[in-house]
């Protein structure tokens, strides 16, 4: 391993993520892994990395780095202005940093999550089989100002690779997301069921554990406690307030709120890239 980057400015939130921590959900350890799997996987493919290499995931940018050695990288995810020594560079296409270069991830114009991936992936200690960071379980390494990101020793790519613009995902301010009925769908009033399926909801904020959305207040036929059961990335649960929460990549493994629906796995990246006050609408599918 070799030191690649020094974090010179800390953004909103950043964490190292690989594909996730499988096999420990029955012990209460969330899966973790990338919020936007499509952008994450694209990065590994562009660099011809192993699909389980580690990327640095950033919420709405704001991070700045200084290169501690020469290296090749790619930026994928939400569209943002990225500068190398104050000159803009293209996302979705490999670029090189030489020792001393300054890389700045500025504001994101579309979407909300950006992945920085070096050739060979970042190097960090694996815990319980994964390098994904989970602050709640003290797993993985937290990245703050002054942290050093390490990389693998790799033989350099001699040419640039990238994804042609038409193949890059776009992140719209209004999204339609496929869902499956949840185990407690029938416990909601018919009006709430209808409103959930036909009314738009607005994203009001969240983090890697859950996204809060607001729309018509969803109510149960009768107030009742639900026995806790398994939840996952994409579970839409409704606490007593009636405002749904979409559980995200660091989703708790079990939860005690009624589950109205679960997001189709193919649409999770769209949910992940929502920005505050974006609109989300649900489309029912048969599981």
């Amino acid at each position: 391993m070799k030191p690649l980057l020094l974090v010179t400015k800390q953004g909103v939130y950043g964490s190292l993520q690989d594909q996730g921590r499988y096999g420990y959900r029955s012990f209460g350890i969330p899966l973790s892994g990338p919020m936007d799997k499509v952008s994450f996987q694209a990065a590994q493919q562009i660099l011809q990395n192993h699909p389980d290499q580690t990327s640095f995931e950033m919420f709405v940018g704001g991070f700045e780095f200084e290169a501690l050695s020469d290296g090749m990288y790619v930026l994928t995810g939400g569209h943002c202005t990225c500068l190398v020594n104050n000159d803009p560079i293209e996302m979705w296409k490999t670029f090189r940093l030489t020792k001393g270069d300054q890389l700045a991830i500025k504001s994101v114009h579309q979407g909300s999550i950006v992945y920085l991936t070096p050739l060979g992936g970042f190097y960090t200690k694996k815990e319980l089989g994964s390098s994904s960071c989970l602050p709640l379980g003290n797993l993985g390494t937290s990245i703050t100002k002054g942290s050093i990101l390490y990389g693998q020793i790799t033989s350099p790519l001699t040419y640039n690779r990238g994804l042609y613009a038409p193949y890059r995902p776009t992140f719209l301010s209004t999204i339609s997301v496929r869902i499956f009925k949840g185990p407690h769908f029938h416990l909601f009033t018919e009006e709430s069921q209808r409103q959930f399926l036909h009314n738009p909801f607005q994203f009001i904020g969240g983090n890697r554990m859950g996204y809060y959305i607001k729309g018509p207040v969803l109510q149960l036929h009768e107030m009742q406690d639900i026995l806790s059961e398994a939840t996952q990335f994409g579970t839409i649960q409704v606490p007593q307030s009636g405002d749904p929460i979409i559980l995200m990549a660091d989703a708790q493994t079990v939860g005690g709120y009624p589950i109205i629906a679960t997001v189709h796995e193919g649409d999770l990246h769209k949910v992940a890239q929502m920005r505050t006050f974006n609109t989300i609408q649900f489309a029912l599918e048969e599981a």
Partner: peptide, 8 residues
């Protein structure tokens, strides 16, 4: 049940 926190 195990959940809420890792290993609870």
């Amino acid at each position: 049940l195990i959940g809420f926190l890792p290993g609870f």
